[in-house]
Amino acid sequence: MDVIGSQLVAGVSIGSVLLLVAIGLSLTFGQMGVINMAHGEFIMAGAYTAYVVQQILGDAGLSLLVALPVAFAVGGALGALLEQLLVRHMYHRPLDTLLATFGVSLVLQQLARDIFGAPAVDVRTPSWLQGNVEVLGTVVPWTRLFILGVVVVAVGGLALLLTTTALGRRIRAVVLNRQLAETSGISTRATDRLTFVIGSGLAGVAGVVLTLVGSTGPTLGTGYIVDAFLVVVAGGIGQIRGAVLAAFGLGLLQAFVELSTTASIAKFLILVIVVAFLQVRPQGLFTVRTRSLA
């Protein structure tokens, strides 16, 4: 029971990190079919934002809370720039977007290396997040619970935005049927831009939170991006609940497979399981039913 409890907690913890890095990606990929390889570098930018804010403010606790909205703005601004300069011109060539944004990620990584140096920088954890708490008979660091909290707020906020606001309605309309949305008077151009900004902003938020559990270096984003894409693929595009289920599903899977083998073999098995799962459901967990032939 103890083992199951601890793996359950570990799985949820892995899942919450996965969800946080994947949720913005799920939005941009789902909305526009655009694969943004620079998403990982937006996460990295968010992490460095946390570092810079902490250098300016000094107090670790205050700076963490300040960094969250600032990083959203930084990520959003980077996203707006990328969309305006590059992605906008390539909506009809999704695979080429992948390569072009990989070029952007190379540039951003080197930029981080030149500004902050290649070694990881130190971001202090606030005193009120140090220490542990016992959940299900397992000792859990407060930082892990904080991440879970941020994820709940971010995903909940996004869900509210999509279901209750006019912007959310427009986004969902464009996902369902771009042409029909356009003929109904929705500016798909403006919707695309805003969606991209929100998705990239969420990457920035993810970066801030990741400073609590890992080191902050120029290659921070690369470590997460592949897993994030797997979550999006397994979850199916265009819906949040797919990403949520896939993230926690993969997190739990990882935790329990690790139990009987090593972490590296667990990672390998997860890929095999995802490929096998796509045999059953090629479109992922949830799909938006459309009439398009694709």
Binding site: M90, S105, V107, Q110
Partner: peptide, 12 residues
């Protein structure tokens, strides 16, 4: 790194 990134973006 800058050159490679810029080259890729420009060509694509």
């Amino acid at each position: 790194s800058y050159f490679q990134g810029a080259l890729l973006i420009a060509v694509i």
